[in-house]
Design a protein around this nucleic acid. Structure first.
Lengths: 144, 144
DNA sequence: ATTGATGCAAAAGATTTGCAAACTG
DNA sequence: CAGTTTGCAAATCTTTTGCATCAAT
């Protein structure tokens, strides 16, 4: 999906909800979608300010919250009290390995893993809507 | 495993590491093991203070960190910046299915799932210390 | 006696909030 | 215009840290 197209999706969502499509919301969404790297709220603030320094930290947090609620962006705990976000709109599902030493995040997909989850859920008559799998530990550069 | 026995395990661990077995460490470990419910650092401080109010918040955090490092207690991010801990010593590892309708939490274990995670990590040279798998959806009483 | 552990209060980091001013529909 | 949204700074919340004092070995 093109960047413009993604922004349109967000704009439509906002308008449908009766929310206003302001220049800072557009800027923040644009920055958030500009990469598939994981970014902190502060990283996002920096990205925005490179383009236009009339964006406040508060607005970044407020907008990020909306994007997360809408499912356009996903926040993940880094295990040390912080959170990183990632661009989800238009991207496939994947799980994460989080290095608790350097903070690196590795994305991976394992079909077998997905299948086993379904199997486990079936045993309990549980219907999975979404799931979150995070492996915490040391990445190959940080293990001793 | 009996409570006394669990405390002995912790005491032995501490002594082996050359750490001191103080009255507050015993108190904190005792409180942390008194339940299998999830508790925050603050909850734990309260639990401790009901028994003896000569425990400081700082010591609770410091001790909780050790118990976590030792694998006696496990911390989980609550997604809102906070963390909850749970008694793990003497309890089997398990993952969670969370019913987003009624809030029921089902604990489950699947050996194959555990094995696949290790396999996936190995591919990236990643060393797993802990992991968190949560399935969100509808439990059998809530699915339509 | 040593040396690690504690308590306190201050510091730090991340996120939220109150409010007047600025902007959108 | 009315009602939202913004920026700023102050306020929260959770966790960590410096340091003088206290206690375990």
């Amino acid at each position: 999906m093109e960047r413009e197209e993604e922004l349109k999706v967000v704009e439509d969502y906002m308008r449908e909800k009766g929310l206003r499509w302001t220049s800072q919301r557009r800027l923040i969404a644009d920055a958030a979608f500009s990469t598939h790297d994981h970014f902190s709220a502060d990283d996002l603030l920096d990205m925005c300010r490179k383009l236009d320094d009339r964006v406040s930290r508060a607005t970044v947090y407020r907008t990020l919250g909306m994007l997360e609620d809408a499912g356009f962006v996903e926040g993940l705990d880094t295990g040390d009290g912080g959170r990183k976000f990632e661009h989800v709109l238009g991207h496939e599902h994947h799980d994460h390995m989080v290095c608790t030493n350097c903070g690196t995040i590795i994305e991976f997909v394992d079909e077998e893993l997905e299948a086993r989850q379904e199997a486990a859920a079936k045993k309990f008559g549980f219907q999975i809507k979404t799931h979150s799998l995070k492996l915490f530990g040391a990445c190959k550069d940080c293990r001793e």
